[in-house]
Amino acid sequence: MSCSATRTASMRTAYGEALVEVGRTNPNVVVLDADLSKATKTSLFAEAFPDRFFNIGIAEQNMTTVAAGLATCGKIPFATSLAVFSTMRACEQVRTSVALTNLNVKIVGFYGGLCTAENGPTHQCIADLGVMRPLPNMTVLAPADAPSCKACVRWAVEHPGPVYLRGLRDGEPVLYDETGPADVSRIQIHREGNDGAILVNGFMLHLALEAADRLAARKIHITVADVITIKPIDQKTLLEIAGNVPCVLSVEEHNVLGGMGSAVAEVLAQKHPLPMRIMGVPDVFSNSGKHSLLLEAAGLTTEKIVENAVELLAAT
């Protein structure tokens, strides 16, 4: 696994570029947006393939079901908006028109977590993973950086059926090499150690890697693994990791209820009960403010990850 956190890149731009790339190789790819194409960068696809781009206006529910209609005719629609609108405003449409029908629709929501920061809680989304996970037939992806986001787009095109892709914003540290992970459906192990494991997704990955470095300096060696696919979660790798460590810490920029921590807890309780701790936004609405300050208020910092890991290890 090659990692280099020396630079950052915009996940939105990566998404737009990836759409153009898959649009070139697959004529069935179509893209829909709800008046946010400049924010979500579907504008790049719109420029390249105007005939296959539909701006539906601020009408996310309609957009979602339109995408379902397109999919019944063999298209591979990417219905794109912000996470809060993709998954919650159009929730029942995703469920009934897309998940229940098991159609080949890709739902994409940017500004997952708190990264829309100053726009405040109305536009932040800490519930999307919890909202999408209970929908049968849904695959739920939450990449950490630009290359893995591109890999998710490529993977989604090849994977028939409903997919939710949680996008972030700009300035995500680049942690994968240019081609991204070979198979995003597998948990990606970035560090290996037997003292404990941190399971992580999205923007939290680089914080977890920093935390692992700091812990290593204290002779504590932990595994850091990126759970890109929240559902269906890669049980095999998860259980392999769990088999080698005494405890597991999950870290996500999402409500502590219902998201990746929940998914990990379900698997462990069912197959391999192990002490764990779930870090995330502690079931509260956040605030307006700088992203870093919001993360700090939610306890999502390198220091807190180190602190929680140490406490959890001490308790086991």
Binding site: G120, P121, S288
Partner: peptide
Amino acid sequence: RKFGTILQGHPDMNKTPGLDATTGSL
């Protein structure tokens, strides 16, 4: 829009005196 402010990026009735409703999702 600054952290801790009474003036959120979108209106929050519980933070700003005089605001009658929380809005922002169109």
